[in-house]
C-alpha cells in the first residue's frame, strides 16, 4: 500500500481545489467505494488524502426554486428523508430507498456515487431521467472555475468520467420537474438490500391528455456506462400509453440495452429484466 503522507480536511472549497490542483489527491467523502477498492488493491491511495466532507456549502439540498441543487457530499440518507424532494422528484427518493443498507446510506454521498461511475450506480438512472447536470470545479488562474456537464455526457467507461483529476464534483442540478411529470425506478438483485443492481431502469415523462412527452428512459448495468435508451424513448414520444405503444417500447429495448454476461447475471437475463421492468413501469403509470 502506498503511504499517505498528507491528510487534508479543509473547510473551504478554494482550499480543497488548490490542494488538488496538481491532480494528485485521493478524494475521500463517505469512503464506501474508496475503502473496499483500496483494501482489495483495485485502487491505491496517493500521497495526499483529501477529505471533502467538511467543506462548507458542499452539502445540502436546495429544492425551493426552479432549479434543484444537491450538494456533492449530501448523503443518500439525506436524499431519502428529504420531504421536498419526495414531493418534487420521488423517482430519486425511490432510488435512495433501494440503495444498499441503512449504514451505507448514512455514509455514501451522491457525488461519490456518480464519480465512482459504476454502470450499476443506483442514483444515476433517476438523475438521467430528471435531466440532471453535474457541476465540476477546479482551481485555475488564481480562482475557482466551474463548468456544468450534462450527466449523460459525464460517464466514459466503468470507473471513468470526463472529470479531470484536478476537478471536484461539487453539485448535481436539475430543473424542477413539471407538475405533470411522472418518474419511476426499478432495480433488481438477489435480495432487496445490499445488492449491486443486476439491472436498473428509470422512466421520466410528462403526461398530458393521455399522451407522453419529454420521455426519458435510463438504464443501468446493461452497457459500460448507464445510458439513455433513445430507441425506447422514440417509441414512446408523443404516443398514448396503450398496449401497442408499450409493446413497441419493450421491443425497442433490444436496440438500447447491450448487456454482457458476468458474475452477477447473464446477458440474456439482463435483457429479459429490462423488458420486464419497462413494461412494469409503463403499466404503473398507465394504472394511475
Amino acid at each position: 500500500m502506498n503511504e499517505i503522507e498528507q491528510y487534508l480536511a479543509p473547510r473551504r472549497l478554494d482550499e480543497a481545489l488548490q490542494a488538488m490542483a496538481n491532480g494528485d489527491a485521493t478524494v475521500l467523502c463517505g469512503g464506501t467505494d474508496l475503502a473496499p477498492q483500496t483494501e482489495s488493491g483495485a485502487r491505491q491511495y496517493t500521497a495526499k488524502l483529501l477529505n471533502i466532507r467538511r467543506i462548507d456549502g458542499l452539502g445540502g439540498i436546495a429544492a425551493e426554486t426552479d432549479q434543484v441543487r444537491i450538494g456533492a457530499v449530501t448523503t443518500i440518507s439525506e436524499i431519502r428523508c428529504h420531504p421536498a424532494l419526495a414531493e418534487i422528484a420521488p423517482v430519486l427518493v425511490e432510488a435512495a430507498e433501494h440503495f444498499a443498507s441503512e449504514q451505507i446510506r448514512n455514509a455514501a454521498s451522491l457525488g461519490g456515487n456518480l464519480c465512482n461511475a459504476s454502470p450499476a450506480g443506483d442514483m444515476i438512472p433517476p438523475l438521467l431521467v430528471l435531466g440532471a447536470s453535474v457541476e465540476l470545479a477546479c482551481w485555475r488562474g488564481g480562482a475557482v472555475q466551474t463548468r456544468l456537464i450534462p450527466l449523460e455526457r459525464f460517464f466514459v467507461s466503468p470507473g471513468k468520467t470526463v472529470k479531470l483529476p484536478e476537478e471536484l464534483l461539487t453539485a448535481v442540478v436539475f430543473d424542477r420537474p413539471a407538475a405533470d411529470f411522472v418518474g419511476k425506478f426499478r432495480k433488481s438483485g438477489p435480495r432487496p438490500a445490499l445488492e449491486i443492481s443486476t439491472v436498473s431502469l428509470a422512466l421520466g415523462a410528462r403526461i398530458a391528455d393521455g399522451l407522453l412527452s419529454n420521455v426519458r428512459v435510463a438504464m443501468g448495468s446493461v452497457a459500460p456506462t448507464p445510458l439513455r435508451a433513445r430507441h425506447v424513448e422514440a417509441a414512446l414520444e408523443g404516443k398514448p400509453l396503450d398496449a401497442a405503444s408499450i409493446a413497441a417500447a419493450v421491443a425497442a429495448t433490444a436496440e438500447d440495452a447491450k448487456p454482457i454476461d458476468d458474475v452477477r447475471a447473464s446477458a440474456w437475463y439482463r435483457s429479459h429484466l429490462v423488458r420486464v421492468f419497462l413494461e412494469e413501469v409503463l403499466n404503473d403509470v398507465r394504472g394511475n
Binding site: 475521500l28 475503502a35 473496499p36 488524502l49 455514509a107
Partner: peptide, 11 residues
C-alpha cells in the same frame, strides 16, 4: 449507524 470498515478513523 455506520460501517467502521468503510470509515477512515481520521474522518
Amino acid at each position: 449507524p455506520l460501517l467502521s470498515c468503510l470509515t477512515l478513523a481520521v474522518e
